[in-house]
Nucleic acid binder design. Structure first.
Ligand SMILES: [Mn+2]
Ligand SMILES: [Mn+2]
Ligand SMILES: [Zn+2]
Ligand SMILES: [Zn+2]
Lengths: 136, 136
DNA sequence: AGGCAATTGTGTAATCCTTACAATTTTTAT
DNA sequence: ATAAAAATTGTAAGGATTACACAATTGCCT
């Protein structure tokens, strides 16, 4: 918890109790949660927690760059505390989103885009069946 | 217009006037429009048009597979009548979404995914500045 | 420690987008 | 032409997000 406090301070975010708990949840669960997933889990331990605080806090984290929004489905926003570019896989059956590590490196796209474009971000995600759901 | 009518019929969609005009818009403009963009444009020529019809029609097109939803930003859904997989570029300044054709082929991702996953769809999009906005 | 100002959290209300539904219009078949 | 089916429309309902005012907490100064 001390490390989370320091981490937030390093990004000019005051480490309130709620902020620390919310960040800890997103970072440790690694489940790319929605706002509701965070709320449902933390409300059990922090009965006073307001959903507005989750919204505010995530917006703060995103603008500070310590959490990235993951947009795969149109109707739900998910959040990821892993800010280095990586690939996501969404299972169409159980709905979970996990990180995927490819066996080989993937092309350097920046060198393949037509002249004139400035690329700031690359986003890649796959959809299909996860190993658990494939076997079931 | 005759070809659009036949195209819809081939996908078991009755070619009503509204449906033909909506499909024509998405296919010809190639601008990956939102529901509102379609509505704002067509309402000028079809004064009776209801936004509900746009929602219903796009949902029908998507379930028939003749239009694909494009989800890049969390707060807006866009639609694309080009159903073959391709790459999108969203300009963070002017907001437009365009198709990108890479100079080389891009890796065959399916072969690079860890064992056990079944990949149905691959989605790649880039964010940055389009040539127009870069120069401005 | 006590007091004060600034920041953060909370609960409710407002807003915006999407969907549900019933009524009307249009199309299709007989 | 008539009736049945399907599509469109307008309004109401729903759900998610944001705005806002007030309460609680924090941090700083004495
Ligand atoms: Mn991730
Ligand atoms: Mn496209
Ligand atoms: Zn699964
Ligand atoms: Zn641009």
């Amino acid at each position: 918890m001390k490390s989370i406090s320091d981490f937030l301070k390093n990004h000019d975010i005051r480490p309130s109790y709620q902020r620390m708990r919310i960040f800890e949840y997103v970072q440790s669960k690694r489940n790319h949660p929605t706002i509701d997933m965070i709320y449902s889990s933390l409300i059990q331990e922090i009965p006073s927690l307001s959903k507005t605080t989750i919204y505010n806090t995530l917006r703060l984290f995103v603008s500070a760059g310590i959490v990235k929004p993951v947009t795969i489905e149109d109707h739900e926003i998910r959040y990821d505390a892993d800010t280095v570019p990586h690939i996501h896989f969404k299972c169409i059956k159980c709905g979970k989103i996990e990180d995927i590590y490819l066996k080989n490196d993937w092309n350097d796209l920046a060198s393949m885009v037509p002249e004139g474009y400035v690329v700031n971000e690359e986003h890649l995600y796959l959809r299909g069946l996860c190993p658990d759901c494939r076997d079931a």
